[in-house]
Design a protein around this nucleic acid. Structure first.
Lengths: 134, 134
DNA sequence: CAATATGATACAATAATAGTATCATTATAA
DNA sequence: TTATAATGATACTATTATTGTATCATATTG
């Protein structure tokens, strides 16, 4: 059971890497060196973060990426939604309106509670809260 | 993001179905009728539950399955471990001993906390707690 | 011994995850 | 103004996990 997939994880670390840099604009190459992750994969992730307005980008020589938001405004929950879709711990496997068996689905209700807590906790984890302060 | 996969879900409901029955021994056919799920898949799941000592089985005519434990002793966490492996929300994507970048991995620590809470909550959800009392 | 259960096991289909590769476009510096 | 170095867009591939299916073996009961 995984909470965070690899692209979310890489996104988090890349954002941390950028946030910790003195320079505003950080190149893919620099991040690759820091994190030692596949360049192509990282590029794709950064492009998505750019489209989702978490990063700004500069093309051309000396280009790269910069945070579009302050680190305390970027939370894990946002990144997970971008890379993993909406968080739904309680998807019912029985497609019909009601479960055919467990009426009022007590299971679903209980998992819903867990989901709410998890979401609240994930919201509280921001890039700011996990970077090494310079 | 899924907390529970389909086989875990089916296992839970099958166990509920058996727990709610007056008869001790319940056949696959009966469970299939109750839950309307693929028979072969269900059989596989029940066989696993049998091997894992959550169910007892009787072969031959009039055979079927019976709970090996009282419903309050069967928790979601057990079923998830059987069908989904150990719960590890915080698997680090960086295989090396230390993350190359985020030292002391604050992220991991925070996710660990979430994991502990989730596990505690899942432990508390038992078959007893979600069956329709007869 | 025939019928009806589960046991064991191998196989297949689908979807999600993870990663690669290539060409287009833009910006800068010489 | 052109070569170069960066990202943008996009299509493709590989791997793994999930979700099943099918078949034959074995045991039990009437």
């Amino acid at each position: 059971m995984k909470l965070i997939t690899r692209n979310t994880d890489y996104a988090i670390r890349a954002l941390c890497c950028i946030a910790e840099q003195k320079e505003d604009i950080v190149s893919v190459d620099h991040i690759v060196q820091c994190l030692e992750i596949p360049r192509s994969f990282l590029r794709k992730i950064l492009q998505i973060l750019n489209k989702e307005r978490m990063l700004n980008s500069c093309k051309g020589r000396g280009g790269g990426f910069a945070l579009a938001l302050p680190p305390e405004k970027i939370s894990l929950i946002d990144l997970m939604r971008i890379f993993q879709g909406p968080i739904k711990l309680n998807e019912c496997k029985f497609k019909k309106d009601d479960c055919p068996y467990v009426s009022d689905c007590l299971l679903k209700k209980k998992i819903d509670e867990i989901e709410k807590e998890v979401i609240a906790k994930l919201k509280a984890i921001t890039i700011e809260s996990i970077i090494k302060r310079r």
